[in-house]
């Protein structure tokens, strides 16, 4: 297609939207609402993941060694554990070091280590990190069953619940996404169909003077793409403004909630929604163009 023709079809695409204002506004709003809801789900999931990630990064398994186990056996135990599948790293922490860590954590001025001296009540500890949060409970169980291990501790419960929620939400979001997409495609397709009908005389003339099929189709595809894109733009604008408001309000009032504020992630979300909107528009118009536009 010539460059000038590209100009003609783009102009006609815009013109279609303008001429068909009411229907275009309806489609754009539906796309906007759909993608806004989609964005909300996405943001929620991203936040849960963010939370899980924060927990996860501190997530480690602490296995306390039986008090009377010789130091060498305990160290051998640690290196055995290091060879297990799903173990990212393993560290043997003798009780002398453990008491120093405790001191640090409490941030006290008191010389804990000095005070307890030889009577350190802490057990030696094997601290390991899993490669994957799903493996944590499995590894923990394995460790519990081991000879010489007294107790195993990890962030059980909380992490599992969070992961389950995120997983469930992602699934629900995915199903929602499909439903929303179908609705948006249907609406855009209907809108394009209205335009095809409104322009039937022009289409007849174009066909008879010898316009190529693609020349006839392009304006409708552009119309659909723009409808989807404008809808997405509206959704992104509302999402970004609304989310930033929410972040500010949460940070001032409920600062303990670890809300995601990563701008790169937000940018990615925006870009994806825009692309997705335009994609929905193209699919919607394709359906109409190939069904109702006889060329």
């Amino acid at each position: 297609m010539r460059l000038s023709s590209l100009g003609y079809v783009a102009r006609d695409g815009f013109r279609n939207i303008w001429r068909n204002k009411i229907m275009s506004i309806a489609s754009i709003s539906t796309v906007a609402i759909s993608l806004f809801l989609l964005g909300c789900v996405w943001l929620f999931v991203a936040n849960v993941n963010n939370m899980v990630f924060n927990v996860e990064s501190e997530l480690e398994i602490n296995a306390y060694v039986e008090q009377d186990l010789p130091r060498e056996t305990a160290q051998a135990l640690a290196s055995d554990i290091g060879a297990y599948d799903g173990v990212a790293s393993v560290e043997f922490i003798p009780k002398e070091e453990g008491i120093l860590m405790l001191e640090n954590r409490f941030g006290t001025e008191a010389d804990l280590a000095g005070t307890v001296g030889e009577n350190n009540p802490l057990p030696d500890m094997i601290q390991l990190k899993a490669t994957n949060p799903d493996l944590v409970p499995v590894l923990a169980e394995k460790l519990t069953a081991m000879e010489g291990i007294d107790q195993v501790r990890y962030g059980q419960g909380m992490v599992e619940k969070l992961l389950k929620t995120a997983d469930w939400l992602e699934r629900a979001g995915f199903i929602g996404l499909i439903c929303i997409s179908i609705a948006a495609i249907f609406l855009i397709s209907t809108s394009i169909r209205v335009t095809v009908f409104a322009r039937r005389d022009e289409i007849t003339i174009m066909r008879l003077v010898g316009a190529t099929n693609w020349y006839i189709r392009w304006p409708f595809l552009i119309e659909g793409m723009l409808t989807g894109f404008f809808g997405a733009l509206l959704a992104v604008a509302i999402l970004v403004l609304g989310y930033n408001k929410l972040v500010i309000s949460l940070m001032t009032n409920m600062s303990f909630i670890p809300i995601m504020t990563d701008q790169a992630t937000l940018l990615l979300l925006g870009r994806n929604i825009l692309l997705y909107g335009a994609g929905l528009g193209i699919v919607g118009s394709f359906l109409s163009v190939f069904r109702y536009l006889r060329v």
């Binding site: 297609m1 010539r2 000038s4 023709s5 003609y8 022009e202 003339i205 174009m206 003077v209 010898g210 316009a211 190529t212 020349y215 006839i216």
Partner: peptide, 8 residues
């Protein structure tokens, strides 16, 4: 319109 349709 017709002239454009034949990509003049």
């Amino acid at each position: 319109f017709a002239a454009e349709a034949v990509e003049m």
